[in-house]
């Protein structure tokens, strides 16, 4: 679904991504893990096509990232909830549904997916941070895009809700959606089918959770230090 080849991104003179080569399988739930500042958001932005790249290439569904046709194929949730605070939850979703040219009846379904149906009539400015993040997530999912790029969608949510969201992600994957989900919390790796580990702008490893063993934190450290398992 996504092919990244020798990707280099410089921002304001600093190298944020350095020679990243990776693949995201179609239908996978791929976790992009790494500490804060490792370049996760920049990599996701490059895939979505809103980040100008310095070198290398990013291809999504066979097209170069940023291609106009891809805009209808990718649902993107930014790290900060990008929804209108002065509209209600439902108004936000109806607006983005019409921009994405999809059926407005999707609004109810997608609100159920993120467990926000009861708050549909609330102004976003009255919601908590986690609730806003879920509205933002619902917005990304509204048009049932074949690729979902989610930047830390589960940050600050209670464990029950996190579990529900991951179940939704896997249900979508089973229906053929590809998901790329970033997180700085290592134990979220368990819930992914594939992993990309990022550190200081470089790809540390591309593997499955099983390959990392039981102690993910420890496995990450060993990878950084180059110690074999």
């Amino acid at each position: 679904m996504i092919e990244i080849s020798e990707l280099v991104v410089d921002r304001d003179g600093t190298r944020v991504l350095d020679d990243v080569t990776a693949v995201v399988r179609k239908g996978s739930v791929t976790g992009l893990l790494g500490p804060s500042g490792s370049g996760k958001t920049t990599l996701l932005r490059a895939i979505v096509g809103v980040q100008r790249i310095t070198g290398g290439s990013v291809r999504v569904a066979g097209l170069p990232a940023g291609h106009p046709e891809l805009r209808a194929l990718i649902g993107y949730q930014t790290q900060a909830p990008s929804v209108y605070a002065d509209l209600t939850v439902a108004e936000n979703l109806r607006y983005f549904a019409s921009i994405a040219r999809c059926d407005r009846r999707r609004v109810a379904a997608v609100l159920e997916d993120v467990r926000m149906s009861e708050l549909a009539g609330q102004l976003v400015s009255r919601l908590s941070g986690g609730q806003r993040a879920r509205v933002s997530l619902a917005t990304a999912m509204i048009a049932r895009p074949p690729l979902l790029v989610l930047d830390e969608p589960t940050v600050g949510l209670d464990p029950l809700l996190r579990r529900d969201l991951w179940r939704t992600f896997h249900r979508l994957a089973a229906e053929g959606t590809t998901l790329l989900v970033s997180s700085h919390v290592m134990d979220e790796a368990r819930r992914c089918t594939d992993l990309l580990l990022l550190r200081e702008g470089g790809l540390l490893a591309a593997c499955t959770p099983a390959e990392l063993g039981d102690d993910l934190e420890d496995a990450f450290c060993r990878l950084v230090e180059g110690v074999p398992a």
């Binding site: 805009r71 209808a72 909830p81 990008s82 929804v83 209108y84 921009i99 994405a100 917005t139």
Partner: peptide
């Protein structure tokens, strides 16, 4: 960030 979202959409 809504502008960036809109511009990433069709």
């Amino acid at each position: 960030g809504t502008l960036e979202r809109l511009l990433a959409m069709p």
